[in-house]
Design a protein around this nucleic acid. Structure first.
Length: 152
DNA sequence: GCCAACGTTGGC
DNA sequence: GCCAACGTTGGC
């Protein structure tokens, strides 16, 4: 099992929105960055686990844990002209963008803030904390995962 | 709103 | 292939 961190803006799709989804499960769609796409397509696997991170908000930080419940598959929102994630450059016969399905495992009892993560020993190498890092899908090493859970 | 950092685009 | 211009991300 591998560990990941998935970012979302709570104003667009926050953890409470996921909690309201049928079976607390949804396709993690709308990722439009090639590096993140490659990870969704090739690296995230059913059975993996990820932190749910809120970005661009009052209190950026980790708010929950999700299970990855599918392998990567084409992002259908890219094919839908009515979707805000529509991309005319993605063809169903040759999909450009990918998703995985995620299911909410649990909300954390409290938000583990970005500021708190920055100050934590043992997380110096967490990709989330690297300068200029902007990917919405990021790996988390097992030791980092445990360190973060220990902060809750 | 500002700005640093990075990705993408497109002319050459 | 280079690189300037532009767009986006995201913390502050």
């Amino acid at each position: 099992m591998n560990f990941w961190l998935l970012k979302s803006e709570p104003g667009a799709f926050g953890i409470d929105a996921l909690a309201k989804c049928r079976r607390r499960t949804t396709a993690w769609d709308g990722v439009r960055n090639f590096q993140a796409r490659n990870m969704l397509r090739d690296d995230l696997r059913r059975g993996d686990r990820a932190f749910f991170y809120h970005s661009s908000c009052d209190e950026p930080g980790i708010v929950g844990v999700v299970d990855i419940v599918s392998n990567g598959y084409p992002d259908r929102s890219a094919f839908d002209p009515g979707s805000k994630h529509f991309d005319a450059g993605s063809d169903p016969a040759n999909p450009k963008w990918y998703v995985v399905d995620v299911r909410l495992r649990r909300k954390l009892k409290r938000t583990i803030t970005l500021a708190e993560l920055r100050g934590q020993r043992g997380l110096q190498d967490l990709p989330l904390l690297k300068r200029g890092q902007r990917l919405s899908v990021l790996p988390v090493m097992p030791g980092q995962w445990q360190t973060i859970l220990g902060l809750e």
